[in-house]
Amino acid sequence: MTYRVRIENADGEVVTIEISADELREKGLTLEELLPPNARIVEVEEVEP
Rank of each mutant, 00 (worst) to 15 (best):
L31A: 01
R4M: 05
L35Q: 01
L35I: 13
D22E: 12
E18D: 11
L35E: 00
E26A: 10
N38Y: 14
P49Y: 14
T16A: 05
A21H: 08
G12V: 01
Y3N: 00
N38I: 01
T30H: 05
E18P: 01
V44A: 02
E13T: 14
A39T: 15
Y3L: 11
T2H: 14
V47Y: 11
R40T: 14
E8H: 04
V14Q: 11
P37D: 12
P36H: 04
G12L: 04
L34Q: 03
T2M: 14
L34K: 03
P37G: 06
Y3C: 03
E8F: 06
E23C: 08
I7H: 02
K27I: 06
E18L: 15
Y3R: 01
P49L: 14
L35G: 01
E26P: 01
E48G: 14
P36R: 02
V5E: 00
V5N: 00
E18N: 10
D11V: 09
R40Q: 12
E46K: 11
N9W: 14
E46Q: 09
A21K: 09
V5Y: 03
R40P: 02
D11L: 09
G28T: 03
V15Q: 13
G28D: 06
S20H: 09
S20G: 07
R40E: 05
K27M: 07
E48I: 14
I41S: 02
T30Q: 07
E43T: 12
E18M: 14
I17L: 13
I41D: 01
A39W: 15
G12E: 02
D22Q: 13
V42C: 03
L34Y: 15
S20R: 10
L29E: 03
R25Y: 11
V42L: 15
N9Y: 15
E45A: 04
V5T: 01
R4F: 07
T16N: 05
R40N: 13
E45K: 11
T2W: 15
S20F: 08
R40F: 14
D22I: 11
L35N: 01
E48W: 15
I17Q: 02
M1N: 07
D22C: 11
E13N: 12
E13C: 07
E8T: 05
T16P: 01
L31H: 00
G12S: 03
A21N: 07
A39E: 04
V47W: 11
R6G: 02
E33S: 09
A39H: 14
E48H: 15
E32C: 04
V5L: 08
R25G: 06
R25V: 11
E32W: 10
E18S: 08
V15E: 12
M1V: 13
E23F: 13
E8L: 12
G12N: 05
E45I: 15
I19P: 00
I19G: 00
P36E: 09
V47L: 12
L29Y: 05
V5K: 00
E46D: 04
A10V: 12
E43I: 07
E8G: 02
E43P: 01
D22W: 13
L29R: 07
E26H: 10
K27C: 05
V42N: 01
I19C: 05
I19K: 00
V42P: 01
G12A: 02
L24N: 01
E32S: 09
D22S: 12
E45S: 09
A21L: 07
M1D: 03
G28S: 06
P49I: 14
G12P: 00
L34V: 09
E46I: 15
L29V: 13
Y3Q: 01
V47A: 03
I41M: 03
E8Q: 12
T2E: 03
N38P: 06
L31C: 03
S20W: 05
E33L: 05
L34P: 00
I19Q: 01
V47F: 13
I7T: 03
T16K: 03
D11K: 10
P36S: 05
R25C: 07
I41H: 03
I17H: 03
R6W: 14
D11R: 09
P36I: 03
E26G: 08
L31P: 01
E46L: 15
A21W: 09
E33Y: 04
L29P: 03
R25M: 12
E33F: 06
V44C: 06
L34W: 15
L24T: 02
Y3E: 00
P36Q: 05
S20E: 06
L31Q: 00
P49G: 13
V44M: 06
A10S: 12
V14Y: 13
R25N: 12
V47P: 02
N38F: 12
L29Q: 06
E18V: 15
L31E: 00
A39P: 02
E48V: 14
R6F: 10
G28L: 05
L29D: 02
I41F: 05
P36V: 03
I19M: 02
E32R: 08
E26V: 10
E8C: 11
E18F: 15
N38C: 06
E13V: 13
I7A: 04
P37F: 09
D11T: 09
E13H: 11
E13Y: 12
N9L: 15
S20P: 08
V42D: 02
G28W: 04
L34G: 03
L34E: 01
V15W: 15
T30N: 06
N38E: 09
E13K: 12
S20N: 10
L35R: 01
L35S: 01
L29N: 05
V5C: 05
E33R: 03
S20I: 04
A39I: 13
L34I: 12
K27H: 07
P37E: 13
E48Q: 14
T16D: 07
T2R: 11
V42F: 05
R40L: 13
M1E: 03
K27V: 05
D22M: 12
E18C: 06
P37S: 08
E23T: 11
T2F: 15
P37L: 08
N38M: 06
L31M: 07
R6S: 10
E46S: 09
V14E: 11
G12R: 03
L24G: 01
E26F: 10
D11E: 10
E23K: 05
L31Y: 03
K27Y: 05
L29H: 05
R4D: 00
V5G: 00
Y3H: 02
I41G: 01
K27T: 13
G28V: 03
E26D: 13
N9I: 14
T2I: 15
V42W: 06
K27A: 11
P36N: 03
D11S: 11
P37R: 06
E48T: 14
V14L: 13
E18W: 15
E33D: 15
P37V: 07
S20Q: 06
E8A: 08
E33M: 11
G12H: 05
A39N: 08
A39V: 15
K27Q: 08
R6D: 02
T16M: 10
T30A: 07
V14R: 09
R4V: 07
A21Q: 11
I41T: 02
L31D: 00
V47E: 03
I17N: 00
R6K: 15
L24S: 01
V15I: 13
A21R: 08
A21F: 10
I7W: 14
D22T: 13
